[in-house]
Design a binder for these strands. Structure first.
Length: 346
DNA sequence: TCTGGGGTCCTAGGACCC
DNA sequence: TCTGGGGTCCTAGGACCC
């Protein structure tokens, strides 16, 4: 247990990582997203993964359709780069290695985010984290909190590249009047459900009766949301390596597929990629799932135990094919995905 | 906003068993 | 079989995060 929790969040990570190896692009709007093969396809159905701060100045945001981003940046000297996940993982690994070298407990929670705990001076550590990250050529914002939730929420006030602090002492003064969506873990759907209960601010959420929220949002989630409103979080960090529980691959096709044989070909390709990922983990698959999204954006999933568990590509592909046959989509398919649930690691 | 890809966790209903 | 209550597993879907 740590007296203080710090949350470090790398600034515009994918764009910043690209600038590390292409410093000549500094200052120009930069947008990262899509695969290398789709970059020049004007019809590709991709979205923005990360926009640099310059690009954000033109209203470009993560998750925005790439075609819209191109339109917004049409009159600029913007640069568009495909996602290079292998490279980002390398850069991320190096940053996390340096953070672990600080001598404090570290919990990695994503490519560009980590919690660091300390019983010492949190301001001093925050500056040390920023200095350490700076040695890689990247920068980060740091949130200081008395638990994980307050630290992560604080980072929102620190971006980009600053330091902010949220504790029990200033929690409600800082965001009590904000909508519940200001809290990590509460999205649009939950916010709407809370609004129907008359809960429109963090303070009102904190003052709600857990049972009332549970009746609407579930026996565990309800009380959990109330605890979020109160600013409660963990003070214990999970410092072990991240162990994936599943591996999946999915593809959105440039144009919808209707041909059954073509769907099966794509499904097998995905299943073999998943099988390779499973084998790379040196674990077995216990359950195979597929995901089908049709033209109307309606998404359906099916899954079945793999009996016996294993990692054979054909065994995984055969179950996926069975599930697709049983689902038998009668509408044009825009996305196909295959997922493997994994055994516990050895 | 014609809406990616890779993950995690929770919920709820039905099956099944005692 | 005019029929209870509960636990657990399986499955589909929803919500959220980066």
């Amino acid at each position: 247990m740590s007296r203080w929790i710090l949350h470090a969040d790398l600034d515009q990570f994918l764009a910043a990582a690209e600038l590390l190896r292409r410093p000549e692009l500094a200052g120009r709007p930069l947008v990262v997203g899509g695969d290398a093969g789709q970059l020049d396809d004007p019809h590709a159905r991709t979205v923005v993964a990360t926009a640099s701060y310059e690009a954000r100045g033109y209203g470009v945001r993560s998750g925005m359709p790439m075609r819209l981003a191109r339109r917004r940046l049409a009159e600029t000297d913007a640069v568009f780069l495909p996602s290079d996940t292998t490279y980002y993982e390398q850069v991320s690994d190096e940053v996390m290695r340096l953070l672990r070298g600080l001598g404090e407990p570290v919990e990695v929670i994503g490519w560009d985010e980590a919690f660091v705990g300390t019983d010492g001076d949190p301001r001093e550590l925050a500056h040390r984290i920023r200095g350490t990250v700076a040695t890689t050529g990247l920068s980060c914002a740091v949130g200081i909190g008395d638990n994980t939730l307050r630290a992560k929420t604080a980072t929102g006030y620190a971006k980009p590249g600053g330091i902010a602090e949220l504790t029990a002492a200033n929690w409600f003064a800082t965001l009590g009047a904000d909508p519940p969506e200001a809290l990590p873990g509460i999205g649009r759907a939950t916010a709407r459900a809370l609004a129907e209960l008359g809960i429109t601010t963090v303070t009102r959420l904190a003052e709600s009766r857990p049972g009332d929220v549970a009746a609407r949002l579930g026996p565990n989630r309800g009380p959990y949301y109330v605890s979020l409103g109160r600013g409660m979080g963990r003070t214990e960090l999970e410092t072990g390596p991240w162990v994936p529980r599943s591996r999946s691959r999915e593809t959105t096709f440039p144009t919808d597929l209707t041909d059954r044989a073509a769907l099966h070909t794509e499904l097998r390709t995905l299943a073999h990629r998943v099988a390779a990922d499973v084998a790379a983990e040196d674990r077995d698959c216990v359950r195979v799932g597929i995901r089908v999204r049709t033209r109307s954006f309606r998404t359906t999933t099916r899954s079945r135990a793999l009996d016996p568990p294993g990692r054979g590509a054909d065994a995984i592909a055969d179950v996926a094919a069975q599930l697709l046959d049983e689902l038998d989509p009668d509408r044009p398919v825009r996305l196909l995905g295959v997922r493997a649930e994994l055994t516990e690691p050895a």
